[in-house]
Structure formats: structure tokens, C-alpha cells
Amino acid sequence: MLTLNCPYCGIAADETELSPGGQAHLKRFGPGSSEDEFEGYLFMRENPRGVHFERWRHSNGCGKWFHAARCTSTLEVFGTYSAQTVEPPAELRKTISEKRPGWSWGEFS
């Protein structure tokens, strides 16, 4: 039963207010993409022990999608941010580096 701060409402939302949406920062591949690219987009997911980026929706609240960066093993939440971005904000990445030096996730580090 996590609590995550909804970056739109600014409130600490209980998990009962939220719906999980899987891994964040997927790049969509449509027609014209290779089999490998499409497979990666549709099926291949990070499954880290440690730093992870996820999509969540404040479904029983404001209805907005947002992203959360958290640690899957300690449940520490590094931050939440708008879903309308293609990469984690620089400041957040800095925060994570302070807490988890040397972290990497997908193309980010």
C-alpha cells in the first residue's frame, strides 16, 4: 500500500486512489518498425531490483497520469513527475544519484 504524491493534485495519494500503469518512458513503435523494435516496445520490460520508473494514474482522484521513480527493494520514492515527458527530470536524476550512486535504468543513469 504505497503512497505517492500526485504531481497534479499535490496530495499524498494512497494506493487505493491509484492505478498502476507499468513501466514508464516506453518509446512507441508503430508501422514501419522492425520486429525487434516492436517486440521491445510491446513486451520487453525492465525488472530491476532497485531504481525503477513507473507510470501511475490518480484514477480515483484527478484522473491524471504521472510518473514515479522509486526503489523496488526498499520502497523508497525518489519523486513523482508529469507523464508528459520523455525522460526523468534532471533534478530527480540528481537526487537518485545522491541516494543510489551509479544507478542506471534503460538508457538513463
Partner: peptide, 13 residues
């Protein structure tokens, strides 16, 4: 409705 919102908010915002 949620499906539409998801695409609008997270892909074609």
C-alpha cells in the same frame, strides 16, 4: 474512456 485519456495524456499530450 480511460484508454482515450491514457493516449492523450501519455503519448499525444
Amino acid at each position: 474512456h480511460a484508454h482515450m485519456e491514457e493516449w492523450l495524456q501519455t503519448e499525444w499530450w
